[in-house]
Design a binder for these strands. Sequence first.
RNA 1: GGUUCCGUAGCUCAGUUGGAUAGAGCAACUGCCUUCUAAGCAGUAGGUCUUUGGUUCGAAUCCAAACGGAAUCACCA
Length: 615
Amino acid sequence: MFALNWLPLQPLISIKPVDFNMLGIQQSIQKSLQEGLQHLFSIDAQEIVLQETKKEFEGTFTFVVFPFTKQAAKAPAQIAQLLGEYMLAHNTKIKAFQVVQGFLNLSLQDSVWVEILVGINQDAQPFALANKNEKVLIEYSSPNTNKPLHLGHLRNNFLGFSVSQILDAAGYEVVKTNLVNDRGIHICKSMLAYQLFGNGETPESSGLKGDHLVGKYYVAFDKAYKVEIETLVKQGIDPEEAKKQAPILLKAQEMLLAWEQNEPSVIALWEQMNTWVFDGFAKSYAQMGVSFDKIYRESNTYLLGKKLVDEGIAQGVFFRKDDGSVWIDLSAEGLDEKLVLRRDGTSVYITQDMGTAQLKYEDFGAKRSVYVVGNEQDYHFEVLFHILKKLNKSFSEGNYHLSYGMVDLPSGKMKSREGTVVDADDLMAEMVNTAQSRTMELGKIDGFSAEESNALFNQLGLGALKYFLLKVDPKKRMLFNPEESIDFQGNTGPFIQYTHARICSMTRKAASMGIDMRISIGKSYELAVTEQELIYLLGDYKSKIQEAADQFAPSVIAQYTYDLAKQFNKFYNELSILNEENEDSRNIRLNLASLTGETIKASLSLLGIVAPERM
RNA sequence: GGUUCCGUAGCUCAGUUGGAUAGAGCAACUGCCUUCUAAGCAGUAGGUCUUUGGUUCGAAUCCAAACGGAAUCACCA
């Protein structure tokens, strides 16, 4: 096993790895090519790049010879031909070669494929990389306690959870944290509206989930606020001024002050509403299937960071202006001056984030930290990371902002105050309903208990939703059209889940038939191209984990899993498995199917998706 | 205006450490269930990879400019 670091995999002998389990084979081929170039053309090639052969051509690996035409002083096709002959003569893994223009396509011996398959079978840990003995903190979710979760939070939570799973599989020790924004003027707005219009309503009395109840009053505040602004404007007050003077806003500001001074009645209301919201969030998280090792609350952390400001001033990193406010000059980094402490000595956003970073380091001692936060905060995190570096913090080098794009609706951006949001709970429920009706239509739940069917509907509905949100490159903004339901066919979660269930069905049957699916080592098998391609993908799994971990990109795993399921279904359609008469072929195909099922299950779990055994 | 990100089929997205005829899914159309789950498979059709210029044997990919979209540039969080 290779020592893997945080940085992209460093090639051992200036060779580009395409694959993990096949790395040895590749290196052997690259070495032969290097020798061939030396022997035939006296070319000392520093770097041998192998790529996957395109589907429409025969072969597994392709070597491009164009770059060597000048040095070899021969036509590309001729170089490829000579190299191919050399390879065939000098490397026993090569079965055949084909030359297309300047491309040398190499095919592997069947025994090599069997060797790979046996290797995976014998791997004690086929679905995870070796322990890296390194801790990584990941912060995600970060909800506000004044409103329920929406579609954007779903992307955040699924991303955060999936990246945690991926890093865990890549051998890191992962600590999942959630920093809840439970204080501030926006929280006071919903508190105030509740006080004014709530009439003592509770989740129990209203039948509303706690977070939805609180969210209702956040909207109510905004409505009342707008009415007041309008009234003021009619009285001839300037609109901008009216926004500042609306009585209800002033009252909310008063409330924030009272909260900061720990006024018992305000604190009691705040705690009451917080309890409701947290209770609601807990239900949403359970339905999403995400979890946290530690939840931090801003009400506990917002005063942190001032000590770091003092440290920074002492170190000369920060400077104090005449009015007493404290700043950092980041113009050398291409940024501006940034405030880190107000003139009245209170913290700002960045101050508390500095403090929280320190606190998390004290709690867990992790030098790596991933923040899953929307891309509207790119600038903020750039500044934060610069500051931590300048403060010379030991945990300052391993910070990464996993910045993801917004989820847009066809009508544009979601705005919670204007009610144009897709609610997370509603959407999940709708997906589960759709899964239910789809499944019923297909008549797939014969012999299921009510409990089993409900579990399946949940797995499929959430699977479709998670896959939909995770298959897209995180940094891109994406479009969600509520009018068009999320598909259950094609490049979707349920398609992959279906493939898994199909395989399970087959292995159950094989077990009842008493078939031994072990591969006899030393026996020679003839393999179809479909089988080779499937083995290639299976052998690629670990390198995909590494790739996804390096890039913090669940989309890499999603794409891989889809390709694997697609390839399996092709294989399944083309070749008989249980009905195959040749016992050796039957056994190796069954082995291949079973391994595919396990790999699908493992990779779906990296996306937080459950792989049902029947559907 | 400065900075950053994005622009690929009608729609949603892959592909971007330079390589062959740019790939999937959805939607449309055609086949395949008296043999292992048809939520499947095979196929048809759909592209000036926003535009222009450059780098080179070779560019969706690298560079420059333009156009279009988004985010951000608060003593808010």
